[in-house]
C-alpha cells in the first residue's frame, strides 16, 4: 500500500516545527511503528535525518509510543497503542498526519518525541506506599473484596502513556493521576496514606502545568487501556476530603 505521510519535524523544543511530506510503501501486516521504521531506513539511505519517535516494548505495555495520528493519540483504533496499530486499518493512497502530543507539560524533544517526565515527577510525590512490604504474602492473607480488587486492577492498567493529556483540549492529566490514585488508594496497603497521597499528587500535577478537567471525556475515549472517568470522580471526592478534613 502506498501512503503519503505528513510528519511533524521539529528540531528541539525551541524550534517552530513544520509538517513534511513523505511517500512510503507499506504492507498491511506492519504495525504503525514498523511502517515508520521502513521510512527511516529509506531516509538513512538517502542520507536524510530519520524521524525521531519514542518506542520501547512494542507490545502495548510500556506507554512509550506517543504520537498523534490523524488528530488522535495512538491513532484511529480504540483501546490500542501506536505499536499495536496495524496498517490494515488504513487504505491504500491514504494521507496520514503524524504529529507529537501537544501539551505545555510535554515539551517536544525532537520530531514526534515528547518529554513525559512530568508524569514521573507526579509518581514520585505519591505513587508508592511507604511501608516495606517484605516478601510476597500468601494470597488472600489480606482480605480484599473482589469488587474493590477489580476497581484497583482496572486503574492499575494505566501505562502512563499520556494519551489522555494529548487528547484533552485542556491539556489536563486528571485521568492519569486518578488512575494512579485509584490503583493505590482502594487497596488496604495504600489506603493508609490515601488523602496525603491524593493531595501531593494533585499538587504536583498542577505545578507541572497540566490543565483543569472540564469533563469533556476525550481522554476516556482515547485511553489505550480503557481507564474510566469514574476514577476522576473518586479522585475528586478524595481531594475534597483531603482539603476539608479537620486533621489527617
Amino acid at each position: 500500500m502506498k501512503l503519503t505521510l505528513k510528519i511533524w519535524r521539529q528540531n528541539g523544543a525551541n524550534d517552530k516545527g513544520h509538517f513534511k511530506s513523505y511517500d512510503v510503501v507499506a504492507n498491511e501486516e506492519m504495525s504503525f511503528l514498523e511502517m515508520l521504521d521502513v521510512l527511516n531506513e529509506e531516509l538513512i539511505n538517502r542520507k536524510e535525518e530519520p524521524v525521531v519517535f519514542d518506542h520501547d516494548c512494542r507490545e502495548g505495555i510500556c506507554g512509550a509510543c506517543s504520537m498523534v495520528i490523524n488528530g488522535k493519540p495512538h491513532g484511529p483504533l480504540r483501546k490500542t497503542t501506536t505499536c499495536q496499530l496495524h496498517m490494515r486499518h488504513f487504505k491504500d493512497g491514504d494521507t496520514i498526519h503524524v504529529e507529537p502530543y501537544r501539551a505545555k507539560a510535554f515539551p517536544v524533544i525532537k520530531d514526534l518525541m515528547v518529554d513525559r517526565t512530568a508524569f514521573d515527577r507526579v509518581i514520585q510525590t505519591g505513587g508508592y506506599i511507604s511501608v516495606n512490604t517484605g516478601g510476597a504474602q500468601d494470597a488472600n492473607n489480606i482480605p480484599i473484596a473482589q469488587s474493590i480488587a477489580e476497581k484497583s486492577m482496572d486503574a492499575a492498567a494505566c501505562i502512563g502513556c499520556g494519551a489522555c493529556v494529548a487528547a484533552c483540549p485542556n491539556g489536563a492529566a486528571m485521568l492519569f493521576v486518578s488512575a494512579k490514585l485509584n490503583h493505590l488508594n482502594l487497596l488496604p496497603q495504600g489506603e493508609v496514606e490515601k488523602l496525603e497521597r491524593t493531595h501531593k499528587m494533585i499538587d504536583r500535577m498542577e505545578k507541572e502545568g497540566f490543565g483543569a478537567c472540564s469533563n469533556i471525556g476525550a481522554c476516556e475515549v482515547e485511553c489505550p487501556k480503557d481507564i474510566q472517568l469514574i476514577n476522576i470522580a473518586r479522585m475528586n471526592r478524595w481531594y475534597f476530603s483531603s482539603a476539608f478534613a479537620g486533621d489527617q
Binding site: 509538517f19 488528530g71 501537544r102 505545555k104 483540549p169 485542556n170 491539556g171 489536563a172 483543569a212
Partner: peptide, 12 residues
Amino acid sequence: KNRHSKGGKYAV
C-alpha cells in the same frame, strides 16, 4: 489557564 496548558492545536 487551560488554553495555556494545551499549548497548541492538531492539524487534524
